[in-house]
């Protein structure tokens, strides 16, 4: 009779469901793992930071304490953006530039550019280093195929521009949506 059949159908569905629930579980995990893997390059990994005389400079960090620790800049510049409030500022410390962006009443780190070989990244790279050294520090995968190594982590990228197989510029930059 029909009700028994329906009970049977239900049983089948349940089993089907449970089996597929298992499949769902595993696929969920797969998805998560994938996200985690992808994240290595873009979201979860430790962001690259620049440290100068013990002062850590991370992208998007509030800049006030950093400026205080760094002392007076050799030169300073500021820029407005059309129609918007706030100033983009840049500070030059001889061996590197520090750029900031405004948000609310505060300024935050937007970019750091290293300009001479007296300073180096936390991974030990400085201007003039060889291609091999860079690849050792950031992996050959990070090469963009033209002239630079680009390592992304979290909401920032570290760009190392090469000129004749020598490092010519090192730039930390915050990434915005």
């Amino acid at each position: 009779m029909s009700k028994r059949i329906l009970a049977l159908v239900l049983g089948v569905i349940m089993v089907c469901g449970l089996a597929l629930a298992g499949c769902g579980g595993s696929s969920d995990n797969a998805g998560n793992d994938q996200a985690a893997d992808g994240g290595a390059a873009s979201s979860n990994a430790e962001e690259y930071k620049f440290t100068y005389n013990g002062t850590e400079i991370a992208m998007k960090a509030p800049v006030a304490p950093i400026l205080e620790a760094l002392g007076e800049a050799k030169s300073y510049n500021e820029e407005t953006s059309c129609a918007f409030e706030g100033l983009d500022k840049s500070y030059f410390y001889g061996s590197f530039y520090l750029y900031t962006y405004p948000q609310g009443d505060e300024d935050f780190v937007n970019m750091v550019e290293l300009v001479d070989d007296t300073v180096k990244t936390e991974e030990g790279i400085s201007i003039g280093d060889s291609k091999e050294k860079v690849e050792e520090a950031y992996g050959a995968d990070s090469y963009n195929g033209i002239n630079a190594y680009v390592a992304s982590a979290g909401e920032m990228t570290l760009t190392i521009i090469m000129d004749n197989d020598k490092v010519s510029s090192i730039q930390y930059a915050a990434v915005f949506e």
Binding site: Y76, S90, F92, M111, I161, S169
Partner: peptide, 10 residues
């Protein structure tokens, strides 16, 4: 204020 930095581009 001073010269603007010509940050190299990729």
């Amino acid at each position: 204020l001073g010269e603007f930095n010509k940050r190299p581009l990729v």
